[in-house]
């Protein structure tokens, strides 16, 4: 294909086949599995199993009834950690966006939160709370809240003051202005922080489970590693990825498309489309 071949040219060549929607995703998944197969061919089988073998282990884990309680334990920690991070991060972001003094006060905390490595918070939270649920929750807050705050801050700062003035000139109440003007204004940033915060929560909770838990996906991975069951460790990792993809395509993207559908195509494609 020549360098100046455009996507439109490609579409013309392929006739009515839309290569930018679901077919593109299917091709992406197929390429992923082919890549996995290729890498697994290089490594010894006991270190890295092939995709089909891994999927068989996943199936057997489901059959044994282990998956649901372990996933539920991880999801519970993520839920509380993520909720607390969003609550704190949004408030910090809004305060930073509203006032220069508040921004200067909060910024050092954000910088500290952003600069410390993920695993450091995990270790610190474990040292403080041991095996309790509070360790992953605290680690999640310390990791995700600063990212959420930064994103929401930019959103609040960029609210179109002309729209607020329009609302004021028509005598619209504060409550309606918040729900109809302010929140939709920051919706793209809220989605970004939601998605980013959730992915960070997944990672930090799983890491903390490795250190300080006797349940959850992270614990199962380290346990499989301890028993030199690498195929099982891979299987748990695949289950983890499956849940993330399910949330992304089953929940976040449809809601995001619905909320942001007013935006021109360029913006929709920026957020990933449908």
């Amino acid at each position: 294909m020549s360098a100046d071949t455009t996507r439109a040219d490609l579409r013309t060549r392929l006739g009515d086949v839309d290569v930018t929607g679901w077919p593109a995703r299917v091709v992406g998944v197929v390429v992923f599995f082919v890549g996995w197969f290729a890498v697994a061919s290089v490594f010894p089988n006991e270190l890295m199993p092939f995709p089909v073998e891994t999927l068989e282990v996943v199936y057997s884990l489901f059959q044994s009834g282990k998956v649901v309680p372990q996933v539920a334990a991880t999801l519970k920690r993520i839920f509380w950690g993520f909720l607390a991070s969003m609550f704190l991060g949004i408030q910090m972001g809004v305060l930073m966006g509203l006032d220069q003094y508040q921004r200067k006060f909060i910024t050092p905390h954000i910088v500290i939160g952003l600069s410390a490595p993920l695993i450091a918070w995990s270790v610190i939270a474990t040292l403080i709370f041991g095996f309790s649920i509070y360790a992953p929750i605290l680690a999640t807050i310390l990791t995700a809240a600063p990212f959420i705050a930064i994103t929401v801050w930019k959103g609040v700062e960029d609210i179109d003051t002309d729209l607020l003035e329009m609302s004021n000139s028509f005598g619209i109440s504060r409550r309606r202005t918040i729900f109809k003007v302010v929140l939709p204004s920051v919706a793209p940033e809220l989605f970004t922080s939601f998605r980013f915060g959730l992915s960070l929560s997944w990672k930090i909770v799983t890491i903390t489970e490795i250190f300080a838990s006797n349940s959850g996906i992270g614990y199962q991975i380290i346990r499989a590693y301890g028993f030199v069951r690498f195929d099982e460790a891979w299987a748990w990792a695949v289950i983890f990825m499956g849940i993330v993809l399910l949330l992304e395509y089953g929940l976040i993207k449809p809601v995001q498309w619905r909320v942001l559908r007013y935006r021109p195509d360029t913006d929709i494609s920026f957020v990933g489309g449908r």
Binding site: F170, G171, I172, P184, V259
Partner: peptide
Amino acid sequence: RLLPWNTCLDNIEFVHEH
């Protein structure tokens, strides 16, 4: 100064709170 997330009709409805 229209609300970009609202349709034409919804933009008009917005100012009819009272």
